[in-house]
Computed example of a mutant assay.
Amino acid sequence: MAVIPEISKYYGRHKLFINGEWIESKSASVEMNLNPATGEVISELPNATKEEAIGAVKAAHEAFKKWRDVPVRDRARLLFELRAKLEEGSDELSRVLCQDHGRTIGEAIGSVRRVIENVESACSALYGLAKTNEHIEQVARDIDQYLTWEPLGAFLIVTPSNIPMHAWSSFVPYALAAGCTVVVSPSRQDPIAAEYICRVAQEAGFPPGVINLVHGGRNVNKEILVQPEIKGVGFIGSNRAGWELFELCGRYGKTSSINGNGKNNFVVMPDADFDEAAQGLLRSCFGMAGQRCLGVDNVIIVGDRYDEFKSKFIEAAKGIKVGYGLDSETDLGPLVSQAGKDKVVRWIEESLKEGAKMVVDGRNVKVDN
């Protein structure tokens, strides 16, 4: 067993990042953040006050006035520096994901790699935006046509608990490349991951106010989104929260990119290599403890080999090693929270009452310390 050292057992009280400064929240509402693998308190999370949330919006709005005019090459330089910082800190970021989210170290390394790739893609998109501007002479008599892409302003970015860093990189680098600024509101279930990636971005040298970070969940998100300076939202999370934000965007005329829950099918064809397919399904079903929108919910066996494949998959599932993600031999880490686990167990029990049949029961699995 190769156990990778923890970064720290206790990170202290989280701060808010507003206008380039880490500030102590004045909020009296504080939650305890736990390491999902050990149950230990690893940080204290204050929920931002209304005044603090609005302060972040004002900072993003003021920063936008200058950031939108920063030359493309200078924006690109900062994004490339962000990429370099992410590469430099990838080991530390991966271990933070294990402790704050519950990932296995392999999954965490892969997630950080996706973050880096998103920044690379944003760099490419930055130059692509410049090329998509169009000028057509004489589109009609004595009329020329110009198409110019312009940044809109400050955006709210809401990231979920299952992919706290990856979701950040799915929005923030692209917004910055386009000349927009952001207020990031991460999930309260893994705030350390959100803070770490924000600190990396700060080290890359972005001007104050271009990136801001506040904590607080739905109430804070709504308060931010209704501010006139916020032009829209980028969201990944639950359907319920997504519909609430989408309704607000419609009411207040905001731009939105809303990504809710996903359901996916895994189809096994009659000529498939069943050993390979079983291993692929294992990763699809149990990767990140099933906490991802690309995970598999339904398995469809084409042909008359259902029982054969079912046996292969059950055998593979029984071989999964459950444990702390910092143990390199662990295949399956914990769900991000006790509430999340309780919900999954409740779904299982309700399914059994409705006639489902249990073939592998992992509800009371014993984990070696």
Score class of each variant (00 low, 15 high):
Tyr10His: 14
Tyr11Ser: 14
Lys15Val: 04
Phe17Pro: 07
Lys26Phe: 13
Val30Trp: 11
Asn33Tyr: 00
Ala37Asp: 08
Ile42Glu: 05
Ala53Lys: 00
His61Gln: 11
Glu62Phe: 09
Lys66Met: 12
Arg75Val: 03
Ala76Asn: 15
Glu81Ala: 13
Arg83Gly: 07
Glu87Leu: 12
Leu97Arg: 08
Gly102Trp: 12
Arg103His: 08
Thr104Gly: 06
Ile105Ser: 03
Ile116Ser: 09
Ser121Ile: 12
Cys123Thr: 05
Ser124Asp: 13
Leu126Cys: 07
Gln138Ser: 15
Leu152Phe: 00
Gly153Ile: 08
Ala154Arg: 04
Ile157Asn: 08
Thr159Trp: 13
Asn162Ser: 11
Ser169Gln: 06
Ser170Phe: 03
Gly179Asp: 02
Ser185Thr: 14
Gln189Arg: 05
Gln189Ala: 04
Ile192Trp: 01
Glu195Thr: 04
Gly209Arg: 05
Val214Arg: 00
Val220Ala: 05
Lys231Ser: 08
Ala241Arg: 01
Gly242Cys: 07
Glu244Met: 09
Glu244Pro: 05
Glu244Lys: 07
Cys249Phe: 04
Gly262Leu: 14
Lys263Leu: 12
Asp271Lys: 10
Phe274Ser: 00
Gln279Ser: 11
Leu281Lys: 00
Arg283Gln: 09
Met288Val: 14
Ser311Glu: 15
Ala316Asp: 02
Val322Thr: 14
Tyr324Arg: 06
Asp327Arg: 05
Val345His: 06
Trp347Gln: 10
Trp347Val: 09
Lys353Met: 04
Gly355Phe: 14
Val360Lys: 14
Gly362Arg: 11
Lys366Glu: 14
Asn369Arg: 15
Asn369Thr: 13
